[in-house]
Amino acid sequence: MKLKPEILKWIILALILTFCNALRAQSISASGSWTPSVTAITEAGNNYASSTLESAANQTLISVSMPPQDLLFIISFANNYQVWVKRTDSGPNWNTAGLQLFVKRTGSGTGGGTSLLLVPSAINNGLTYQQITTSDVQFFDGYNFGNSTRSGIPIQYQITGVSVLVPAATYSTTITYTLVDN
């Protein structure tokens, strides 16, 4: 059987489009750092009034884009992703000093697209505090449709272990969110 050149041309086009969609890279963007201050101790004999510091509920906003999983822009399939998180300390190690850094997701953000059948995108997990360690740990996951970006995912932080027993120092860390195409 021999395909007509016109049909063959469109088959090639379909294959290329599908291939190129798969080549599109995912994208994650996080903005909003956090540098809280401790409340000064005013009376000798006391420790800090609270051993916990907590950020605003939307201290960091994350946006996630995924390459479309579709067929010729007509049928979109869910493109699953995971977001992992880790920290890289600069200066004293937080855990050695007795400080712990926690993170949680306080909302879902907006966007992410819908399927042809109007099934909305989704975002799951990460709604309770989990410790950020120096190794990547899975934070939350979800799926988008098409080229849509899920944006404004609100992130909250917590530092525990604040005490005069912790060596006086500036504790700094870089929190890295990594997007994994699932």
């Binding site: 963007s29 750092s33 201050s37 401790v38 530092i159 120092a169 500036t170 860390t173 870089t174 890295t176």
Partner: peptide
């Protein structure tokens, strides 16, 4: 993507 966090004791 990264953000920073820090506290001074």
């Amino acid at each position: 993507s990264s953000v920073s966090a820090g506290v001074t004791l």
